[in-house]
Design a protein around this nucleic acid. Structure first.
Length: 454
RNA sequence: CGGGGCGUGGCGCAGCCUGGUAGCGCACCUGCUUUGGGAGCAGGGAGUCGAAGGUUCAAAUCCUUUCGCCCCGACCA
């Protein structure tokens, strides 16, 4: 095809092509999702397959659909929430000195043979063969791949420390996938690996990652605890888990009522009193969403990956690894924050911050409603779900509650004709009536209200 | 992997025991009415009954095999 014909068919005017951001591509100009143009509907009835509340609500609210046991498609609303979770994690990992990479999910078996995990991982490891019958695995975790990679990249202690991380789909052929997204066979995870020249440095990074994780969960708007934990298959002798508190959690956290000590009950099954200060302990159920491990030489020694230290000696890397279950966080957030009407998203990870619900025929086209839509849109670009469907008010209320938008701007005849609008706060049910012109600034203030607890 | 349960329009279910024209609610489409908490009436579309084999004049239904899904126990982000 000739150059001219391409230009002739281009929908964009030639004059606009420039290295700068043209006005029609202003990234700050967000998009409104109009409900009338959204094919994805909510479900009124409980899906029979779903037992736990997050799974039921995710199906009902149109967040996910199941393809096979433990394998789910993420629909647009879920992706919006996942991207927000990922971006908070990215910002905090970068702040902590991490560098994002993307490693292959498809991994040749020989790396796994080197660490002995081709056998040790057992049936949990998804295995397949290529056309030449060469064995591969679908990565359940990436210690082998990253250690191999870093050994090629780093030869000197001067290049350390190094803290690569990635956000990627992991594959684990669970004995028993269940609870929807909470325990899938395919799930999204952030995994980070630290490479240090000394044990001291490695432990410093371990502590920095503990702090980073605490910041992440605080920013996500989730009530959580850091607890002492077992290391399991990943290995090492020092590890902590990050737990999101939820009544339906599979894990039990015991924590001291006086000091800051807390542990997974698996790690301290017989603790009746705090081992640090002797005070009494209490227990709560929770969902594990993050895990940090100090690995030391576990992988670097087995894989014989070394660097040259300041005295010219070849020594193995001192390693740590740090995981966060991204997709699990989304489900755990719903487990933690929901009510009889549906999801109650924390503001930082809600698919849309606010819904706008014009009520009654023609209300969605009224100039004052469109003006308000535009001003909220400029306040919160790409954060507005505009329910312009021609359906009865009750359906809009039910859907907005089910989908859990933190705010609902309700525009009914009774208020709009007086120049007012109503804001409903999803979490508390509280309603505020204000002049239409003041609704955006009111929303802005409400969204900055302190987090419930952390 | 051991134990229990279930596969019937997109979703929730009935029908199966005692074989005989596949049905109900929701959702969907058309029309009219309705519009602050899942509206009403009328009409309509949509299912090889998980799959394969067998018994029978005839199978969603009985028999055999198989696949899938959910729940309870040992693990994990």
């Amino acid at each position: 095809m000739s150059r001219t014909s391409v230009r002739a068919r281009s929908p964009l005017p030639e004059a606009e092509v420039s290295p700068c951001i043209p006005p029609w591509a202003d990234p700050n100009q967000g998009a409104v999702l109009r409900a009338s143009a959204d094919p994805i509907q909510t479900l009124h009835e409980e899906p029979a397959e779903a037992e736990v509340v997050s799974h039921r609500l995710m199906l009902r609210a149109g967040l996910v659909r199941k393809l096979a046991g433990g394998v789910y498609s993420y629909l647009p609303m879920a992706i919006r929430s996942l991207r927000k979770i990922e971006n908070i994690i990215r910002e905090e990992m970068n702040r902590a000195g991490g560098q994002e990479v993307l490693l292959p999910a498809l991994q040749p078996s020989d790396l796994w043979e080197k660490t002995g995990r081709w056998q040790a991982y057992g049936p949990e490891l998804f295995r397949l063969a290529d056309r030449h019958e060469r064995p591969f695995a679908l990565g359940p975790t990436h210690e082998e791949v990253i250690t191999d990679l870093v050994s090629q990249l780093v030869r000197s202690y001067r290049q350390l420390p190094f803290l690569p991380y990635q956000i990627q789909t992991k594959f684990r052929d669970e004995r028993r996938p269940r609870f929807g997204i909470l325990r899938g066979r395919e799930f999204i995870m952030k995994d980070a690996y630290s490479f240090s020249a000394s044990e001291d440095d490695a432990r410093q990074i371990y502590v920095r990652m503990q702090e980073t994780y605490a910041r992440i969960f605080l920013r996500l708007g989730l009530e959580h605890r850091m607890v002492e934990a077992d290391s399991g298959l990943i290995g090492g002798n020092l590890s902590h888990e990050f737990m999101v508190m939820a009544d339906s959690g599979e894990d039990t956290v015991i924590s001291c009522e006086k000091c800051s000590w807390a542990s997974n009950i698996e790690k301290a099954p017989d603790a009746r009193v705090c081992p640090h200060c002797g005070a009494s302990v209490s227990s709560r159920t929770a969902i594990e969403v993050g895990h940090v491990f100090y690995l030391g030489h576990k992988y670097s020694a087995k894989m014989e990956t070394t660097f040259l230290d300041a005295s010219g000696n070849e020594i193995p890397f001192f390693m740590g690894c740090y995981g966060i279950g991204v997709s699990r966080i989304m489900a755990a957030a719903i487990e933690q924050a929901h009510d009889g009407q549906g999801i109650v998203w924390p503001v930082p990870i809600a698919p849309y911050r606010t819904a706008i619900l014009p009520l009654g025929p023609g209300m969605a086209e009224k100039p004052e409603v469109l003006a308000l839509l535009a001003s909220i849109e400029s306040l919160w670009p790409d954060e507005v779900y505009f329910d312009d469907r021609e359906v009865r008010p009750g359906i809009k209320f039910q859907d907005a509650d089910l989908r859990g938008f933190p705010f609902q701007v309700i525009l009914g005849e009774r208020h709009v004709e007086k120049g007012n609008g109503e804001i409903k706060i999803r979490r508390t049910g509280e309603r505020v009536v204000a002049p239409l012109t003041e609704v955006p600034s009111l929303l802005s203030r409400l969204a900055q209200a302190p987090l419930p607890e952390a």
